[in-house]
Computed example of a mutant assay.
Amino acid sequence: MGCDGGTIPKRHELVKGPKKVEKVDKNAELVARWHYCALRQEKLCKPIVACELGRLYNKDAVIEYLLDKSSEKTVMEAASHIKSIKNVIEMNLTDNPAWNGDKGNTKGDKYDDQGARFICPVVGLEMNGRHRFCVLRSCGCVFSERALKEIKTDLCHKCGSSFQEDDIILLNGSKEEVEILRKRMEDRRVKAKSSKKPKKCKASESLSQADGAEDSPGPSDVKSDRGLPVREKIQFVSSSKDAADKGTSTSGKLSSAATKRPLANGEEKSEAYKSIFTSHTSAKRTKEQSSNWVTHTAYYF
């Protein structure tokens, strides 16, 4: 154990010096950023999304995080700025044809560098963290920074959609670059909120104008037959034709003819037609045919 039997301890055994600063392995850090989800620490698999700060997530992990409304929910620093699914961008990635998946070297008896799963469609650089990559916020296409610098255009190299310089988001950048992206994100959200307010004011003004138009009286002299039923429409048309043939020009006669129905002239009807109704004399019973007791029927008179 020491200090017995004449042993002399040394200084480094008695005095503890300052702890050595643990250095982060760069390769392990790159693998964690580019191959694993920043929210769940699971392997990235399609569909993959990126936030406005350039971090990579699995889309299902973000949806589950947003749907979790329980009080036990822990707010993650990597997703604290994500308030809705609109705050993330679904990435349009280009597969690497040389990537064999996880089936490359199953025995482990040799060194096998499989490379990255995705590449730049313009230059062909692998998206493994050694090269800087960017995503376009407008369309979601992913390119290397070298491709965007060498070929300077306002159109996407993959889908052809237009974009601006503010739409370029650097993936997994440094702390200073992340702060720049955060300022852009905050400015963009402030502009979005300010642009929504005048739209609501315009909508309220349009509603008030519509109410004023309904209250204001329209031309009352002209009468239309849109609100009338089918039979009254027919009578309205027939009465107007008759008035035109006879040369009448007053609108009061047309309105009275449209509302009043022609009375049936009893003299023109035949006896067979009259016998259908209960008011005819043939439908009435005599005193001999009627019974002694009172019946409440339609044929009792």
Rank of each mutant, 00 (worst) to 15 (best):
L155K: 11
A147Q: 00
V135A: 12
S174L: 06
S138L: 02
S144E: 08
N172S: 01
K175W: 02
S162P: 03
R130E: 12
R137A: 14
I168T: 06
C159K: 00
G140H: 04
N172D: 03
I169T: 05
L171E: 10
H157Y: 03
L136Y: 04
A147R: 00
G140V: 04
E145G: 05
V135C: 13
I168K: 11
L136V: 13
T153R: 14
F163V: 08
F163W: 13
L171W: 05
K152L: 10
E165I: 02
V142L: 10
E165T: 09
E179W: 08
K158D: 15
G140K: 07
H131N: 08
E179L: 15
E150A: 08
C156T: 09
C159P: 14
E177R: 11
L170F: 10
F143I: 09
E176Y: 09
S161Q: 07
C141E: 10
R132F: 06
G160A: 13
F163D: 00
G129P: 00
G129W: 01
L136C: 08
N172E: 05
H131T: 03
E145W: 06
E176G: 13
G173V: 04
C134R: 15
S174M: 04
D154G: 15
K175P: 01
G173H: 01
G173T: 03
G173R: 02
H157C: 12
E176I: 12
S144A: 11
E177W: 12
K175S: 10
E177K: 04
V178Y: 09
N128E: 05
S144P: 04
R132M: 03
E179H: 11
C134Q: 14
I151V: 07
R130D: 14
C156R: 15
C134E: 13
L148W: 03
G160L: 05
F143C: 13
A147Y: 03
F163Y: 13
N128H: 07
H157Q: 11
G160V: 05
